[in-house]
Design a binder for these strands. Structure first.
Lengths: 141, 141
DNA sequence: GGTGTCTTTAGAACTGTTCTAACGTCCTTG
DNA sequence: CAAGGACGTTAGAACAGTTCTAAAGACACC
């Protein structure tokens, strides 16, 4: 039975990412980061991550999940997306891109930036700095 | 002292709009609709409308404000916009357009559609129908 | 004017999120 | 290695915005 759990590599890189971001790699943050960044890009709500942690026997409080998500977001490891008035999603893809939002299921799907081009962006009033442009395509499905 | 309140014209058109939308023009809905549509386009939260009603001596419950906003939205008189994770704005401009969002003040400002052009919109997965495209430009101000 | 349907209401309930204050953990520095 | 301090975590309470509930009220149509 050679079923070793996924090797140290993942741990190491996750650990490095936390360190680079200036976040102490605590047991909880490491576990959550692994869940988030383990495979591919994901869109997760706090509640989802909390539940996933539970099913993986990772004991963290809900407050810690929120803290971690916000800390990660602040340090640029995640990007927060508000679609619905009462749920926030956190996107592990922090690059420039946009989203499909499936109204029925509440799921998100990435749209790579080069599929959408915004031309003649109007100047921000008062010369204010633009912090981000979000495009959300709502889909009836 | 000839200070008649603003003339019947506004009332009539608001009343007609409600009727056309298939909404019974109750005292409360009329009053709220007048506040919303009286002058120019507005972005209002439920709480704001509720307070504006109070200061105008319009007695409505908060539940009624929510009911009216949702009814109006369902009938196409308003458009709902979610920016922040916990506040919904209702936009009296239901035409195709986008928004600046001023992060500091929480205010919204319209961007007319022809200031933004989205090219090569990707096909909605599974041929699903697109119900709306929202562009929000977040501005540090 | 009576009748049935739709609307309003106050307050309770609910949901997602944040706060609080006590406790743990880790990293010094001597 | 011990003590100290900064930083993290925790459970549960608190909070904000919104929705629900059940009862009372308004409206439209015959």
């Amino acid at each position: 039975m050679r079923q070793k759990k996924t090797p140290a590599v993942a741990n190491v890189t996750v650990l490095e990412r936390l360190r680079e971001a200036g976040l102490r790699p605590t047991r909880q943050r490491l576990a959550l980061a692994k869940l988030l960044f383990a495979r591919g890009h994901r869109h997760m709500s706090a509640e989802e991550l909390f539940n996933e942690a539970k099913t993986h026997r990772v004991n963290v409080s809900l407050a810690t999940v929120y803290n971690a998500l916000h800390d990660f977001t602040e340090k640029g490891l995640l990007r927060e997306i508000s679609i619905d008035s009462n749920i926030s999603y956190f996107d592990t893809n922090t690059g420039n891109h946009h989203h499909f939002y499936f109204e029925r299921s509440g799921q998100l799907e990435d749209i790579s930036e080069d599929h959408i081009s915004i031309s003649s962006l109007p100047p921000a009033p008062g010369g204010a700095e633009i912090s981000r442009v979000d495009v959300i395509i709502r889909v009836k499905a």
